[in-house]
Amino acid sequence: MSTLVRTTYPVPIEDLIPAARQLAADLGVVPSRNRIMKEFRIGAEKARVVLNALNEPTPAPAEPHLRSVPNPVEIEHSDSPDEMPPAPKGAEASPQVAAPVDLGTATQTTPIGDSPAVVPTTGRPVRSWPVLLLALPAFVAVWSGWVGLGTLTGFGVVHPLPGIADGFTINSAITLPIGVETYAAFALRVWLSGKVPAAARRFAKWSALSALVLGALGQVAYHLLEAAGVVRAPWQITTVVACLPVAVLGMGAALAHLIHARPNQNAEK
Rank of each mutant, 00 (worst) to 15 (best):
L66Y: 09
S144L: 14
A267K: 11
F40Y: 04
K38H: 04
H223K: 07
P31Q: 04
K195L: 09
A99Y: 06
A173K: 06
L149I: 02
V119N: 06
E56Y: 03
R67F: 12
N266S: 09
S68G: 14
L149C: 02
V5L: 12
A135Y: 06
V240N: 03
V29F: 15
P64V: 11
F203T: 09
K46L: 13
A228F: 06
A25T: 05
E76C: 07
T121V: 15
G179K: 00
A227W: 15
P70Y: 04
A99G: 05
N264A: 10
V147M: 10
P12R: 10
E63H: 01
G43S: 12
A247D: 13
E45V: 14
L244H: 00
A141G: 10
G156V: 07
R33S: 05
P177R: 03
A227I: 12
G250P: 02
V69F: 12
E76Y: 14
P81A: 14
E181F: 03
R41G: 13
L214M: 13
L209M: 13
P263T: 07
T169A: 15
G113F: 04
I112N: 03
I164V: 15
Y9M: 08
N34H: 03
L258A: 11
L23E: 03
G215D: 08
V220S: 09
P85A: 12
T169E: 15
A216R: 09
F40W: 02
G156K: 08
G163E: 10
E56C: 04
T239R: 12
H65L: 13
A173S: 15
R124P: 06
E226F: 08
V231R: 15
P234N: 02
T105I: 14
G215P: 06
S115Q: 14
S193T: 00
L136S: 02
E268S: 07
L136R: 02
S32C: 03
R21A: 10
H257I: 13
N266C: 08
T109N: 11
T105V: 14
P12G: 05
I164F: 13
W146F: 14
V11W: 03
F40A: 03
G154D: 06
V231H: 13
L192V: 05
E14Y: 05
A187V: 05
L51N: 10
T175K: 00
G167V: 11
T153N: 02
P95L: 10
V147G: 00
R124I: 09
S115T: 15
V196I: 01
A227Y: 11
G252H: 06
S193W: 02
W206G: 10
R67W: 04
P10E: 08
L224S: 06
